[in-house]
Design a protein around this nucleic acid. Structure first.
Length: 270
DNA sequence: TCCTTATGTACAA
DNA sequence: TGTACCTAAGGAC
């Protein structure tokens, strides 16, 4: 269950284990990717790349495996002995020193460079990519009557932000999630973008999402650390009815376009 | 054993 | 706006 930082981390991890060296054996124990796996097996993994939540594995620089984890996809790395695959293992790479399994992805497909280019073209700037242009994103935000909360999840506008980073970055900038995009000032957008770059880079480094400032950590505030399956310390995400770390107001939750929204009504006033 | 839930997206109406 | 799809874990029975 990933946001962009997970995908960029996966790009690094696939590369460190399989790029160069012995070309991996490529299999699809589940069968859904078997034909493509047969074309790729024992060819070189030459590069890996992430854009937002999309992962690309480049074989021979011309054959790209396009992976999107969706809500359920999981990637597991390991070292030999290689365990028997389960019937949900979509893609397995194996070389003499490592293996990696992919399960439950929304997408795992062999695509051409042209098809890859089309995917980049429909994605907005990614705070984790060097080629990202935040002004292009702001231009769309600024002319939209849609809420900033919805815009931040729109991958055409900004790529890689998911439900956790959305909730947390709006809290960190005291912005009401229901505020229309057109009311976001250039200074606010600049601050949001800069913050996302820093937060998501740290997310790649630590492979988890932490958003609380040093003065609000469990140690600094003498409170118990969060115990949750997403792993990080946060202000509002899935903290429904718990007291805000800053003002003790109960954190609120609501449904917004079928996604869970979390915010502090005091720190993020309408 | 069934039901719910989840860091997501695409397509139909 | 609703629904379908991909999977696994945890809780209610």
């Amino acid at each position: 269950m990933p946001e962009g930082h997970t995908i960029h981390r996966l790009a690094q991890d696939y590369a460190s284990r399989f790029q160069g060296g012995t070309p991996p054996e490529v299999t699809s124990p589940q069968g859904k990717f078997s034909d493509s796996a047969a074309l790729l097996t024992h060819t070189e993994l030459t590069t890996t790349e992430a854009h937002g939540k999309h992962l690309f594995l480049g074989f021979r620089d011309t054959d790209w495996v396009h992976i999107h984890l969706g809500l359920f996809g999981k990637v597991t790395f390991g070292t030999p002995p290689v365990p028997p695959p389960t019937d949900t293992t979509r893609l397995r790479l194996t070389n003499p020193t490592a293996y990696v399994d992919l399960k439950g992805p929304t997408t795992c497909a062999l695509i051409t460079p042209q098809e890859k280019q089309a995917i980049h073209a429909r994605l907005g700037p990614d705070p984790l990519r060097d080629d990202a242009d935040p002004t292009a994103a702001y231009a769309r935000v600024h002319r939209s009557r849609t809420t900033i909360a919805a815009l931040l999840l729109d991958q055409k506008i900004i790529a890689g932000v998911g439900n956790v980073y959305r909730a947390e970055v709006l809290f960190r900038h005291h912005i009401d999630p229901y505020r229309p995009g057109k009311d976001i000032t250039p200074a606010e957008w600049d601050a949001i973008w800069t913050d996302l770059v820093a937060l998501m880079r740290e997310g790649v480094r630590n492979n988890r999402i932490d958003t609380v400032r040093p003065e609000h950590t469990p140690e600094a505030m003498n409170r118990p650390p969060r115990v949750d399956d997403h792993g990080g310390e946060v202000y509002v995400y899935r903290r429904t009815s718990q007291p805000c770390h800053l003002c003790t107001t109960p954190i609120r939750t609501a449904d917004l376009s079928s996604r869970n929204l979390f915010w502090c009504p005091t720190c993020q006033p309408a």
